[in-house]
Write a protein that binds this DNA or RNA. Structure first.
Lengths: 142, 142
DNA sequence: TATTGTTATACTCTATAACTATA
DNA sequence: TATAGTTATAGAGTATAACAATA
């Protein structure tokens, strides 16, 4: 029992470190593309035609923040706003340019991932563990 | 080779999700303790008597930001500034209250870690993989 | 009445550049 | 001269509350 808690504590510490690395990698990738971390996270979180409130949910922030983030991404031509059947709801969609930038950022994040130091077998194991963690909390499978 | 790249891409996506969860968990823990995410990250990154520039390095931000973050943590009695032998350098140290809050936050992060859904054996495997990822990039072993 | 997005406000984080004190 | 930390500044993210349009 003590062991289990120790493991949980160690993992939390290691996960904190991995998270810090990922956060810095995200900031770096953002800077390289003349964006901010939040804008990159928004770009990576967008599906086709997501209501702004959904994006707020995915980003874990208040809906009022999404207005500004969307404004800036829209001003750069990376996303556009569309009106749905319910005219209160605005749907966000990536433009072709937005998809291009999103893919660039994705590739950059893959390249700089701390998982790069693992062997192929270890990478597969990690992938399965991450998938299990994600699935247990409602993340759509990759 | 294609497989390796696919894995890397999948892992990057899953890692992004895990990172988002961790980021939100950090913000939640911060809010519960009346702090901000950056303040929590600083608290968790502090060793005994870290120069302010070291903290900036750990947090991946400019040194000028550390002044404000340290100001606010110091105002709440969670850290204190000390002057070292080289009197240009200011060393940051956690106060007893700061250590208490740091431990509270740590425990909270352990509780809400997405690794909670794994079995004991899976958790051990994850721990080893994370340790390997961390060690390969100069993170002191836990 | 309730919901979605916007706006106004105040605070924090962020990088850059200029500054002070020390080396 | 060079370095560590501070200050000033401007832009961005954040939550809260009040608001408009729509349901």
């Amino acid at each position: 029992m003590a062991k289990r808690n120790d493991d949980a504590h160690d993992i939390a510490g290691l996960l904190f470190w991995v998270t810090e690395q990922a956060r810095m990698g995200c900031e770096r990738a953002a800077e390289e593309n003349d964006m901010t971390g939040a804008q990159v996270r928004a770009l990576l979180s967008l599906d086709d035609l997501s209501p702004m409130s959904s994006l707020a949910g995915h980003m874990g922030c208040d809906a009022s923040n999404v207005t500004g983030i969307a404004d800036r991404l829209e001003a750069r031509g990376l996303i556009r706003r569309e009106t749905g059947a319910d005219r209160r709801i605005k749907l966000l969609a990536l433009t072709p340019e937005g998809k291009k930038v999103r893919d660039q950022v994705r590739n950059r994040l893959s390249e700089t991932s701390p998982a790069g130091s693992l062997s192929d077998a270890e990478r597969r194991t990690l992938k399965e563990l991450l998938r299990k963690m994600a699935e247990s909390e409602g993340q759509p499978a990759v």
